[in-house]
Simulated scan of single mutants.
Amino acid sequence: MDSPRAPNPDFERAVRDAVLSMPAARRLGFQVGRLAPGEAELVQPYRAELTQHDGFVQGGVLGALADFAGGCAAGTLLPAGWANMTIDYTVKIVAPARGERIVARGRVIKAGPTISVAAADVYSSTARGREVETLCATAFVTLRNIRVPDPRRGADR
C-alpha cells in the first residue's frame, strides 16, 4: 500500500493549530507530537487531577485522547480550509493507564471526501532507565469532513 499524501502542504501547522485552538484540548493539557500524512501522536502528561481514586488515568480522558488522535490523523489528509468533527467513536480500555505520560497514536483507516475513519492506540508510558509503553486502550473514530467557512467572505454557501 502506498503512503498517503497530504493535499495540504502545511498540514502540520493546520492540525496543531486546530487542536491547540480547542478549549477541551488545552484544558486537558494535550500536546501534539509527531505528525505525518495519515498519522498523528498526541501526548497527555500525567496530572493527578485527571485520575480516578486509585491513581489511574480516568477512562474519559483516555477516550478523549484517542478521539483527538484519530481526528488529528484524519486531519493530516484534509485539503487546506477543511476540518473534521467526530460523529462516533468507540474505545476499549484493555489495561489501567498509569505513567509519566499517556501517548495516543492515531492512523487513518479510510480517508473519504465526506467521512473518514481512523483508529488510535493509547499507551501509558514510564521511563525506567528506558521508556516502557503499555497498551491501555484502542479506539475507532468516525469523522465528518467539513469545509471551514472563510470569515472574510461571510457565510459560505
Rank of each mutant, 00 (worst) to 15 (best):
K92S: 15
G70H: 11
G81V: 05
G106H: 09
Q52T: 14
P23S: 13
F68T: 14
R26W: 00
T51F: 04
Y46R: 03
G55H: 01
G33I: 10
Q44G: 01
L35S: 06
E100Q: 15
G55W: 06
K110V: 04
C72V: 02
G106K: 04
T86R: 00
G29D: 10
G33W: 08
P113H: 12
A83G: 11
M22V: 12
P79H: 01
L77V: 07
L78R: 06
V103T: 10
V103N: 07
L65N: 01
Q58S: 09
P23F: 03
P23M: 06
E41W: 02
R98N: 05
R26Q: 14
F11D: 03
S21F: 00
L35Q: 11
Y46A: 05
G38N: 09
R98V: 10
A25G: 02
L65G: 02
I87Q: 11
I109K: 11
P9A: 06
L28P: 11
A36S: 14
L78E: 13
A18R: 12
K110E: 13
A80Y: 00
A74Y: 01
T86Q: 03
G112F: 06
Q52E: 08
T51H: 09
W82N: 03
M85I: 11
T90C: 13
A97K: 10
V43K: 00
R27E: 07
G55C: 01
D17S: 12
A64F: 14
I102Q: 05
F30E: 13
G38L: 05
A74N: 14
E41Y: 00
V19H: 04
R107P: 11
E12G: 01
G81E: 06
T86Y: 04
A48T: 12
M22W: 00
A73T: 07
G75M: 01
V43T: 13
W82Q: 08
P37I: 09
V61W: 07
L78P: 11
L28C: 07
K110I: 01
G71S: 13
W82F: 14
V32W: 05
G70E: 10
V15E: 08
D10I: 00
A74E: 05
D67N: 15
R13F: 12
G71D: 04
F30C: 12
T90F: 10
R27D: 05
A24E: 09
D10C: 00
A24L: 15
L62P: 13
V91F: 04
R47L: 12
P45V: 10
L42H: 03
G55E: 07
